[in-house]
């Protein structure tokens, strides 16, 4: 009981702390000047985080373009086409991916992916594309493990029902199993998005960290999380408060993703 409350209390304290520092700042600078201005010059008193919000969203979206199809395909493969003993080896291996420190992912991004992008497509290499690719791999464990649980809970009767109607294995997956598990898979992807938007270390290393509105996937960008992590150590006064305010924005975004995932899951159980 006490332990459960420790977790809850620390979440609450974190929220209160961030909001106490951040919200008055947003109120002072003005909602519009903070969220919708592109002018980020803390020394001159300009705190527009619009490019960073866009960068975070685009990088997350890009990560989903990479991670969602791969993750869902992998979950389908594991559940429908692979024998049980093989699954017992493959699934823990995938979950091990989640245990690799994000700095290692960032390292791979810097020494392998970024040079590849630079030589193949041009641009600085450290870019939105690079960050999306790395994050896309990082969210795989989240998406795969939730999706496989969802698919495993689709009643076998649906599979047999589809097969008995003359469907091939593949047709039964795409017309029945994925439909039956749709809301659960949506939840898996949204939770993956929450993971991607909150990721910091790997993104700092590979995104290039230029505060600008990107014109192409090859442009260097700076996300909300990267900005906080890089400047927190040296920031003072209003600059420091501005970083807390960014934290508030991130906090709300992630809360929103989780709420969306929850409602998708709830819908799934209500639909049965």
């Amino acid at each position: 009981m006490a332990l459960a409350f420790t977790a809850l209390t620390s979440l609450l304290l974190i929220a209160i702390f961030i909001f106490k520092e951040g919200v008055p700042f947003i109120a002072r600078v003005g909602f519009k000047d903070f969220l919708l201005s592109s002018d980020w010059r803390p020394q001159a008193g300009h705190f527009g985080i619009y490019p960073m919000i866009i960068a975070s969203l685009l990088v997350t979206f890009g990560a989903m373009l990479v991670g969602a199809p791969l993750g869902i395909a992998c979950a389908v493969f594991l559940n429908e086409f692979v024998s049980k003993p093989a699954t017992r080896i493959i699934k823990p291996t995938i979950e091990l991916l989640a245990g690799i420190p994000s700095v290692v992912y960032g390292f791979i991004g810097v020494v392998v992916v970024a040079p590849l992008i630079r030589s193949q497509f041009g641009g600085p290499g450290l870019s939105m594309l690079c960050a999306s690719l790395i994050l896309g791999v990082m969210v795989l464990p989240t998406i795969i493990s939730i999706s496989t649980d969802v698919l495993a809970s689709v009643p076998n009767a649906y599979r047999e029902g589809a097969l008995a109607l003359g469907a091939t294995r593949w047709q039964s997956v795409h017309m029945v199993i994925l439909k039956a598990g749709r809301s659960g898979i949506v939840a898996a992807v949204i939770l993956g998005m929450g993971r991607a938007i909150g990721e910091t270390m790997a993104v700092i290393m590979v995104a290039g960290n230029t505060v600008q509105l990107p014109h192409s996937a090859l442009d260097s960008v700076c996300t909300l999380t990267a900005k906080i992590a890089m400047e927190m150590g040296s920031a003072t006064g209003p600059h420091r408060q501005a970083l807390f305010a960014i934290g508030v924005v991130l906090f709300l975004m992630i809360m929103m993703f989780n709420a969306l995932a929850m409602s998708a899951i709830k819908q799934r159980f209500a639909g049965k």
């Binding site: 009767a157 649906y158 029945v176 439909k179 039956a180």
Partner: peptide, 13 residues
Amino acid sequence: VGMVFALPVPLPL
């Protein structure tokens, strides 16, 4: 050779 099961399992459509 079609099959009707013991428990009716309409597909979720």
